[in-house]
Every structure is written in structure tokens, then in C-alpha cells.
């Protein structure tokens, strides 16, 4: 069983309980404009360039057999010409060029995740993330199965935009589902994320009905999700499904802007992370709506 992975983060402290290792699977069916991991959106591997590491020596341009690279202040990649042959990566002395997206087997992925097992203790473990972890659900389920077999706690971070069979496959191997409900309004969801949220909500109800341990999250994005009406609506909705629901609001993280710059893309979201005071106002909404388990990181 092979998958395409674009990152493995060790010492993950915000992806479930305890200390964890998180595996990022490539490809996502949604197109959130604020995505923190734009390099994980596309399923297929791609060439990544980090301007900060570039020495401007031009070795890659000279070595590229497909003339896919151009040096002009920085390196510009013509993705249509790049065959991902790896030659530029090999010759780059600054390690500024690298392939994003590695093929690996579920066994290899599990081994890499379990390398930090000594840190997991009872609460920690492994987490699948993305991209969208369920976009490669067969691979993901196998990875978590192997980890669970090794006695390690498993979690998945998902937007739940996935077929029911994906969830059925994950249920027996996943100790915790950390799910995103970003926008409750169907039209706005469709407008911003490129698809409606019916499937997401159905899947959430399915998980609750199957007694899965679920944590609902909403990333607070200025101009998109961070509106009182949206948060209040989501709170009401999840309580209607699960009166005992856990809900976490993730503060906006503007640090990903540098990734967009590296990829020569615009980042459409303005603004800063919310202050503690602003966060408290959001938490008030949750309290008013009667959320019993408000998770604050």
C-alpha cells in the first residue's frame, strides 16, 4: 500500500493528546483560500523552492535538462516543463530546491511515525493530517492500523469531505477524530471552499452515531469563518448532534504567508492572529450556546 506524503512533523503538540508525530498526506478535495499548507493541496508531487536558502549560484538552471528553471532575482519554476527528475535538487548547494511529496509504503510511514514512540507515553501518539488525510484513506487506514497494532494512540485531522466507506475504514483504527467544520452556511461554504458541506455534516453525524471520539474545530479566519453568526451557528449545530460535544477554536495563523510567497502565489487573507481578548469574545459565544467542553490550546 503506497501513499504520497509531504511532511512528517515530530513533537506535534496541537494535533491531539500528549506528544505526537503527525503525517501529512498530499491532496485535498477542498480549496480553502486560507490553507496553511498550500503545498499539500495538489495530490501530485511538485518541486518546492525556498528563496531563503537560495545562494543564487544558478547551478540548478544550468543542470536542468528540461529548461524548467529561470534565475531572475530568484528561481522561477515552470511547472509545465518540470519532470521532477531531481537533478536540480542534487546540485543545489543551499538545499533550496526539493521535491514535495514522497511515495512511501504504509509500513515505512508507520515506522517513521513510531520512531518517536518513546515520547508518546499514554496520551500521545500519531496523527494523520494533510492536505486532506482521507483523500488517501486506504493508505491512511493501513498506517493507523499498523500504529494501533504497535499499541499507540491514533488520531486523524480531517475536513470529513470523503466517502462514507473512508470513515468506515477509519473507525476501527482511529482513537480520535479531529474534524473541521469551517462554515455552516451552505452557500458560503460552496463559494469559498469549492464544494457544499452536506457530506461533511452527514459524516460528522455518522461518527457521533458510531460513538467515535470527536473533537470539532473551526479555524478562525478573518473575513471567512471568524464571524459571530458562523461560530454561533456551528456551536448550535454540533450541540444538536451531540450535546456532549468538544469544540475548539483555532486562532488564525498568518505565518503561512511565507509559503505562498515562496510559491509565487498571493495570500488572500489579511489581518493578524486574534488577541487573547478577542479570543475570549469567541469563547463567550460558545459558553452562551452551552458548549460543555471548550478546548483551549
Amino acid at each position: 500500500m503506497m501513499g504520497i506524503v509531504f511532511d512528517l512533523k515530530r513533537f506535534a503538540v496541537h494535533d491531539g493528546g500528549g506528544l505526537r508525530s503527525t503525517l501529512f498526506l498530499k491532496g485535498c478535495p477542498l480549496h480553502c483560500p486560507w490553507c496553511q499548507n498550500p503545498e499539500g493541496m495538489e495530490r501530485s508531487p511538485a518541486l518546492w523552492y525556498g528563496p531563503g536558502d537560495c545562494l543564487g549560484c544558478g547551478a540548478c538552471v544550468a543542470a536542468c535538462p528540461n529548461q524548467a528553471l529561470r534565475l531572475e532575482q530568484r528561481i522561477h519554476i515552470d511547472a509545465s516543463k518540470c519532470r521532477l527528475c531531481g537533478i536540480c535538487e542534487e546540485v543545489c548547494p543551499g538545499a533550496a530546491l526539493k521535491r514535495i511529496g514522497e511515495q512511501m509504503t504504509a509500513k515505512e510511514a508507520a515506522e517513521a511515525l513510531l520512531r518517536d514512540r518513546v515520547f508518546f507515553g499514554e496520551a500521545g501518539g500519531v496523527t494523520l493530517s494533510g492536505g486532506e488525510a482521507l483523500s488517501q484513506w486506504r493508505f491512511g487506514a493501513e498506517v493507523l492500523r499498523l500504529c494501533k497494532e504497535a499499541g499507540v494512540n491514533t488520531a486523524i485531522e480531517t475536513c470529513l469531505f470523503a466517502p462514507r466507506e473512508a470513515l468506515e475504514a477509519m473507525l476501527p483504527v482511529t482513537d480520535q477524530f479531529i474534524i473541521d467544520i469551517k462554515i455552516l452556511d451552505l452557500e458560503l461554504h460552496r463559494k469559498y471552499l469549492g464544494a457544499g458541506n452536506e457530506l461533511i455534516l452527514e459524516n460528522y453525524e455518522f461518527l457521533v452515531a458510531n460513538q467515535a471520539k470527536v473533537l470539532v474545530r473551526t479555524p478562525l479566519i478573518p473575513g471567512y469563518t471568524a464571524a459571530e453568526e458562523n461560530i454561533r451557528g456551528i456551536a448550535r449545530y454540533i450541540l444538536s448532534v451531540d450535546p456532549d460535544a468538544s469544540y475548539e477554536l483555532l486562532n488564525f495563523n498568518p505565518l503561512c504567508r511565507s509559503k505562498y510567497a515562496a510559491m509565487e502565489r498571493d495570500y488572500p487573507v489579511g489581518g493578524k492572529a486574534f488577541t487573547a481578548k478577542e479570543m475570549d469574545r469567541f469563547y463567550e459565544i460558545l459558553e452562551q450556546e452551552g458548549i460543555l467542553h471548550i478546548i483551549k490550546e
Binding site: V13, G18, G121
Partner: peptide, 22 residues
Amino acid sequence: QFFKTDTGIEKFVELLRSVCRL
């Protein structure tokens, strides 16, 4: 920031226990 929340403290304690195990 790591030490500002109870969760952070819990995770830090787990890190100390890991150092011990290592």
C-alpha cells in the same frame, strides 16, 4: 507560550518523562 496552559504543562511533563526514558 508553551507553559501558559495546563495542557502545555502536561505535555512538558511528558517531555521530561521522555528524557528520563531516553
